[in-house]
Amino acid sequence: MMIELLVAFLVVGGGFFCFAAGLGVLRLPDLLVRMHASTKAGTLGSGLILTAVAFAFLEGTVTARAVAAIVFLLLTAPVAAHLIGRAAFRTGVPMDAKTRCEPGVAEALHHRQPDEAPR
């Protein structure tokens, strides 16, 4: 009974964070702010639901697979977000008026010589 309560709580919490991530990706003002919602809230929602699966089955093999999936998500989400953010910033995506960047950096990137192009 306690396990079922815990699983239900984790499932609904994970679903809520997945919904919040979708809402953030749709409604937030610019790309770098949207990535905040997609990487953090999305990973937390999926992690909570996979934890619920591990608690619902309570078997060694299932727990191992759920933990592997969670660890994999936690390892890859920051790497993917860093790559997208880097590519987007270097290609000069439009930013919201409230998004600030260190003075001179954007100009230096946009007036870069062609031999300094990213490999």
Partner: peptide, 24 residues
Amino acid sequence: LADRIVALDMMTVQLVAFAGLSAL
């Protein structure tokens, strides 16, 4: 295109959650 990549990335993460719910 960068906005679309972010949306696709997050949809994949949510499909992982969907697969977990299917297992339940």
